[in-house]
């Protein structure tokens, strides 16, 4: 429902931005995706800490689910950003600070997921992934600072509202907020789906184990 409302507002309700034209509407997907991708990353790290601390599989599964869904949104951020950048900046990609940060985030997610794929059968996999998730999250602030000092040309929409890049029309703000909410819900929903699948798998493992134990016990007699 919220998604439909967001789509309606993005395509029909909100006025077209004067300088950039129709392509500016992608912004209402781009920003929420970015927010959700970062949130996913945070969630990976938090569940990593909780897993190492409490040792419950639930946190491991949550971290895995968050990384997978976060990776999808992070990819969307890069794609929508590129589509917007081509007509506006004239290039698909520049080494601007936020682009670079997002790309690095994407690479870190990729590394984490590759590790999960490579270590999932090992009983250590969960612990290793938790550690890498935490280390990656620690890296993010350093990345942000260093890359920002390195260079930046990205429009600072929400931060400074300078020049022609701000959101002049109040309808734009409303649309952005609705889109944010819609993407947050979408993220949460996808996360729950993946999470439930992983929990289910864990449950299957537990039941298989119980079955194997019962069979072995039957043979004992």
């Amino acid at each position: 429902m919220l998604m439909v409302a967001a789509l309606y507002m993005v395509f029909l309700y909100v006025p077209t931005e004067a300088a950039q034209g129709i392509v500016q509407r992608i912004f209402y997907f781009h920003v929420p995706c970015a927010w959700v991708a970062f949130a996913g990353f945070g969630l990976v790290a938090i569940s990593g800490v909780l897993y190492l601390w409490l040792g419950q599989d639930v946190w491991d599964d949550l971290g895995y689910a968050a990384a997978e869904v976060g990776m999808v949104f992070c990819t969307l951020v890069l794609i929508t950003g590129s589509i917007w950048a081509k007509p506006i900046w004239g290039v698909w990609w520049t080494w601007d600070s936020r682009l670079t940060t997002t790309l690095l985030l994407w690479l870190l997610y990729g590394g984490y997921l590759m590790l999960r794929a490579a270590a999932n059968e090992s009983p250590n996999g969960a612990r290793l992934a938790a550690v890498v998730g935490i280390v990656a999250a620690l890296d993010v602030p350093v990345v942000i600072v260093s890359v920002r000092l390195w260079r930046t040309i990205h429009p600072a929409v929400l931060v400074t509202k300078q020049g022609g890049h701000g959101l002049q029309d109040p309808r734009m703000v409303t649309t952005l907020l609705v889109a944010m909410a819609a993407f947050t819900v979408l993220f949460a929903w996808l996360l729950m789906l993946r999470f439930a699948t992983l929990r289910m798998r864990a449950r299957i493992d537990r039941l298989t184990l119980r079955l194997a134990l019962a069979e072995a016990a039957a043979q004992d007699i």
Partner: peptide, 10 residues
Amino acid sequence: HSFGSVPVLR
């Protein structure tokens, strides 16, 4: 002890 769903020691 079990590895995944394979029991080794009971």
